[in-house]
Write a protein that binds this DNA or RNA. Structure first.
Lengths: 237, 237
DNA sequence: GGCTCATTTTTTGTACACATTTACGTCTAC
DNA sequence: GTAGACGTAAATGTGTACAAAAAATGAGCC
């Protein structure tokens, strides 16, 4: 549909972003400018721009003079992000109920079908991404560019959170059943139901936060604290 | 209070931003990288970063290969921005009612007194800026970083809109009386009243949109549309 | 043996130079 | 006289070199 030519920063941006979502880059990972430049075959200039953008969206943290690392939201920060999403998604949901035409409803359905296919075939990374894009498409249909831009940032962060907190959890993510239900409500222009479904949908994300614990391999000290206290145990077999 | 050292981009960013708010840079103005570099005594690298940031906040529009211009929101875009603010400000207002302590209430009052002083002495630019910072401080007190970041972008855009649409209007901007009333409601933790006041406050911005007309020297086509249809009328006197 | 401090190395920040694209004025053909 | 093509000038996009800062390393000291 859209045939705009992607600039180099966009390509790098998306690659890094996808890598973060698909957990190939764990939260806390240092993002070295020169290494990335070598990998993508571009100069640091391009990498720098991509990182700045990711930084603006808070998906990576930019520390002056100390480089960029993949963000690792704390439990508290994660809750705040979900809260912000509640605020935005409520407004978006109402707007979608008002605005969505048949064509867009079909577009939404197709996207969720794709999402379902990804999860079925076990491609978690692509699944999480499509799940996020569903919510972005909603914001697009809402036809409010500022909200869309904010939603983009929040969805990125949500995906990061899901990736970070959903390590062991078997239950699927933004479950596509709920997306289908939402689409039904949109088609019927049933605002109340749609909003209720959406809030419920976000409840599920929040529930996961309380289950999975956040301490990850970033915090080396925490992970090896037990080792430290038993230094003189059997070193190897 | 906060003694962090500002980087060069920050300084440039703020200068350009202020210039836009204070109408020293009119909407539609082309922002030439080299000229700006000369003015601020830095290389294009720094200018470029500042412009990228302004572009991300949508305060300037970045056209690939064609440079940056100061944004000039259409009437429709302005309405969408105000709508987004309603969404965010409602949530922020409720959070402020829940969270604000006596110290913060005093901080808010002081800020509005400063704002009042600016308008009284006729310094419109500083007044508009402080008025915006009041709303930013609210988002800070709400203690939700994602909402704060979105609010920052929206407040910037609102200021731009006010500057653009409030050309002739005598009535003052974000009137500080309303800010004082809001603070009262916060202090009493009266959510309903505070939200009502805030919505009313935003109504005032929206009203101005309908009064002042937007067509500026940017949209040449609109301006000369009448001329086109009467090509062979009397040319000059 | 552990700690501090100086040196080295790595990494980020900035300026600058070159490549590419775009805008504009001119020239030519019809 | 107008429309189109071409060439030139200017501005943006990108790579690279150098400067400054931080991190890592190792020597010296307690």
């Amino acid at each position: 549909m859209k045939g705009e030519k992607k600039t180099q920063d966009d390509v790098v941006y998306e690659h890094i972003f996808d890598a973060i979502l698909e957990q190939r880059l764990a939260p806390g990972t240092k993002l070295n400018e020169e290494s990335l430049g070598d990998i993508f075959g571009v100069s640091r200039t391009i990498i720098r721009r991509a990182l700045a953008r990711l930084g603006y969206e808070q998906v990576v943290v930019l520390r002056p003079n100390r480089g960029a690392v993949v963000a690792s939201p704390s439990l508290d920060e994660a809750r705040q992000i979900v809260f912000a999403r509640r605020v935005v998604e409520k407004a978006v949901t109402e707007l979608v109920c008002e605005n969505a035409d048949a064509n867009q409803i079909e577009q939404l359905k197709q996207m969720v079908r794709d999402e379902q296919a990804c999860f079925d075939r076990g491609d978690l990374g692509a699944g999480i991404r499509l799940s996020g894009e569903f919510h972005l498409l909603l914001a697009e249909i809402a036809k409010n560019p500022p909200l869309l831009s904010f939603q983009r940032s929040l969805v990125s962060l949500s995906s990061l959170i899901i990736a970070q907190f959903e390590k062991g959890t078997a239950k699927s993510h933004c479950s596509y059943d709920e997306h289908f239900e939402l689409i039904d409500a949109f088609a019927k222009r049933d605002k109340e139901k749609a909003v209720a479904l959406m809030m419920h949908h976000l409840d599920h994300i929040e529930e996961k936060l309380n289950l999975g614990d956040e301490a990850e391999e970033n915090d080396l000290k925490a992970i090896f604290s037990n080792v430290m206290s038993r230094k003189q145990s059997a070193p190897q077999a």
